[in-house]
Design a protein around this nucleic acid. Structure first.
Length: 502
RNA sequence: GGCCCACUAGCUCAAUUGGCAGAGCAGCUGACUCUUAAUCAGCGGGUUUCAGGUUCAAGUCCUGAGUGGGUCACCA
């Protein structure tokens, strides 16, 4: 912390002064010699030279953070780390000189400092490939102590609040975010290869929609207009289909003003796509194909391990109707109970405990999330949803109470949602007005009717299939992390300012 | 928001029934020309998250608060 200067801080600050006094800039603008090799490249170059039995020395200029140091009189060792990994440097007083050795290396450098090292690659007596330093330059002085070199940083709160420290000392954390980036890259690779166009639609929206969630609200001062941070991309992406773009997708941030948990963050990354002339069956095939592609890119196969369980993403996945799934796992056939009251009574009679009787669709959804979802470990599509919880999905032919919709589940988690999109503007208006009645005026989940969206659809929207999935939850899956916070670089935490100001 | 758990040195962790707040690493001083959790000798480092309370005595017990974690609720 910086609010009080303790002895530890004073020692570091005194070193900065001493460096300046000796004419050494503790924060120089650039390296005296440009970096020629990463740590990994330097090792590889040396091993190649060894293999070739070359006599010419491998000269390198390296840069990185000094993580450890072992001083033995007039010779010392240190490990530096750069983006490619760690490398030992070997420092001899008779090579680098007295000033560089005694003053800089032994005294004024600290663990955590960024340094540049020039020298030749050698193998030490114990066989470790190392750089024997001929010059050392301080690149950036660290004023804070590094976490324990052996135990690292374990405190969960500190790891999240100071992710930069977590990243610098815990290489496996960096690895998670590399995997996440590769996953997103593989998703784009699949969609681009299928002719989808990546687009960007507004984050600030005058009317929020496309999902049932409470939005964050903000205000444009000059326009004197209330705006919402988007809770989904759906209504904008489908306007693009009206405009003639046939296959579109967006990867971006959604914001939902709801509870925080191991699988919910107030802002999270969503993937949505819409495809003209496709229905939800086509979407299912794409979801299978896309995630199998991602798995192959990341692991070479389709079987991944998540929290100790093997999950096989190879198509085809299980398909089960919502009704059959609830019969199987909760032993209730909701089609036998046409009203919310009747269904709630039946649930109670079966020993379940429904929380609300306001909405039959919500009761069915609670049966799904409480009894079905935890059992769907292998990938599964749950299909055919009640109309009252699906206002943007097309009705199933011959069954006006059901829509062509699916959600998919992996590892007992809901991963995404899709439908054959409703493109009948008259039906859409009726459904939105019905929602107004279903959700009371005081219900924060009630959506305003988006007249411009209805206008767009009135121009004619091709039949299409749409899909949305949580990218963070996919990252949890592919990185084998049980908490969304472990796949977010900076997960949302409550601010500490209030407590510190008092 | 309810309930449960945690919070001790920069980091990782101890502290018996309520009885002198400790160790390792990191830091500082010194020794040491091939170490790798280097080693050896010495030194400094604490409002035990915060505010109250009980007690001769509180890191430990009680009340409240903060932050984090878990869980339930919420989350088409």
């Amino acid at each position: 912390m910086t609010e009080t200067s303790n002895e530890r801080d004073l020692v570091r600050l005194a070193k900065v002064e001493e460096l300046r006094g000796a004419g050494i800039d503790p924060y120089p603008p650039r390296l005296d010699q440009p970096r020629t090799h990463t740590a990994a490249e330097a090792s590889a170059a040396f091993e190649q030279a060894e293999a070739d039995a070359s006599d010419s020395p491998v000269q390198v200029h390296l840069a990185g953070r000094m993580l450890s140091r072992r001083i033995m009189g007039k010779v010392g060792f240190a490990h530096i780390e750069d983006g490619s990994g760690r490398l030992q440097i070997f420092v001899r007083k008779d090579v680098v000189g007295e000033a560089a050795y005694d003053q800089l290396f032994k005294k004024l450098l600290d663990l955590g400092d960024f340094i540049a090292v020039g020298g030749r690659m050698v193998r030490t007596k114990t066989g470790e490939v190392s750089c024997e330093a001929e010059s050392i330059q301080l690149l950036a002085k660290s004023l804070e102590p590094m976490p324990d070199k052996w135990h690292g940083l374990k405190d969960v709160e500190t790891r999240y609040r100071r992710r930069y420290v977590d990243l610098m000392v815990n290489p496996e954390v960096r690895e998670v975010f590399v995997t996440r980036a590769r996953m997103v890259q593989a998703i784009r690779e699949y969609l681009d290869g299928e002719g989808f166009i990546e687009v960007e639609t507004p984050v600030l929206q005058p009317i929020y929609g496309g999902a049932a969630a409470r939005p964050f609200t903000t205000f444009h001062n000059q326009l004197k207009q209330e705006l919402y941070l988007r809770i989904s991309f759906e209504l904008y992406l489908k306007r693009l289909l009206v405009g003639g773009m046939e296959r579109v997708y967006e990867i971006g941030r959604d914001f939902r003003n709801e509870g925080v948990s191991f699988k919910h963050n107030p802002e999270f990354t969503q993937l949505e796509w819409y495809e003209a002339y496709a229905d939800y069956h086509v979407v299912m095939e794409r979801v299978e194909a896309m995630l199998a592609h991602v798995a192959r890119r990341l692991t070479g196969g389709t079987v991944i391990s998540y929290q100790g369980r093997e999950i096989d993403l190879a198509p085809p996945w299980r398909r089960v109707t919502l009704r059959d799934a609830i019969i199987e796992y909760a032993d209730i056939d909701y089609t036998q109970y046409p009203t919310a009251q009747a269904l709630a009574d039946a649930m109670r009679a079966m020993g379940h405990r429904p929380e609300s009787t306001s909405n039959r669709g919500k009761l069915i959804d609670s049966l799904l999330s409480n009894y079905v979802e935890p059992n769907l470990v292998q990938p599964a599509f749950v299909t055919e949803y009640p109309i009252e919880i699906s206002p943007l999905a097309k009705k199933k032919a011959g069954d006006p109470s059901t829509v062509e919709r699916f959600e998919y589940f992996i590892a007992g988690m809901e991963m995404g949602n899709a439908f054959t999109e409703l493109n009948d503007p008259l039906d859409q208006r009726a459904r939105m007005e019905w929602m107004q009645q279903l959700y009371g005026a005081d219900d924060e989940e009630r959506h305003p009717v988006d007249e411009d969206y209805l206008l767009a659809m009135s121009y004619g929207m091709p039949p299409n299939g749409g899909f949305g999935t949580g990218v963070d939850r996919l990252a949890m899956l592919f990185c084998d992390k049980a908490s969304i916070r472990d796949v977010l670089l900076f997960p949302h935490l409550r601010s500490l300012e209030r407590g510190e100001a008092a």
